[in-house]
Design a protein around this nucleic acid. Structure first.
Lengths: 111, 111
DNA sequence: CTCAATACTTACAAAAAGTTTAGTATATAA
DNA sequence: TTATATACTAAACTTTTTGTAAGTATTGAG
């Protein structure tokens, strides 16, 4: 992350640099709502996201301790994603962001 | 914005595509906290942001109806930025994001 | 006549982010 | 033997975003 001491004063900058990427908030929201979700399911919900993008962002979220990845060595393979305890602390923000979007899609559509 | 009907189902995607950019949330937060702020002051607070970046993001926020720009034709010129009524509806999200960041900077620093 | 102050804009360059296409591994089913 | 399913990864490429450096406009002060 490009977070340096200069921004020690700015917690919100910390938050957004930690969760940056066209899809990260959506991914977190989906995980929050589903409790747990398999890779292909997530990909289907988020299409047209590219596999590379999805798996990269998941990996980053995992590295940041927000998402948990559980792999089952079956055939065909199964991988389940869910929020960590830390990830769950984002829930109120996710809810508000979703609500805000919902209201504004409406008013944008009123034209 | 690249928001299309495909995402009609996903309000949170709408929100993040509307407020995208490395600095937008921080800018909004500064405006929220200061009520109003002049260009150079904002630039100083956000350094090392580039002028180009700052003025572009301000312009986009203005176009999206979240930020208000008031220009006084004095010499030297004076321009003041503030949140619109619509922009103010983001306040709860800004607060939560800032809180979340504050908590996590701490726990990241505990190592 | 030149400088200073504020709030930018412009052209160009670099970096970051995302996409496209193709391919991997494994084992069961047809 | 070939196809199928899942969960990816790799390389090359395009797009988007951000940064750098310089320049613009105004007018009052020295």
């Amino acid at each position: 992350m490009d977070f340096n001491s200069k921004y020690g004063k700015c917690p919100i900058y910390y938050t957004i640099s930690k969760i940056q990427g066209k899809w990260k908030w959506v991914i977190l929201y989906k995980l929050y709502k589903s409790k747990m979700i398999r890779y292909n399911r997530l990909w289907n919900d988020l299409k047209p996201i590219a596999h590379r993008t999805l798996s990269k962002q998941l990996k980053e979220l995992e590295a940041d301790g927000l998402v948990h990845r559980e792999q089952y060595n079956e055939v065909p393979p199964r991988v389940e994603y869910s929020l960590t305890e830390d990830g769950k602390t984002l829930a109120p923000i996710l809810e508000l962001m979703s609500d805000w979007g919902a209201k504004h899609i409406d008013s944008d559509t009123e034209n």
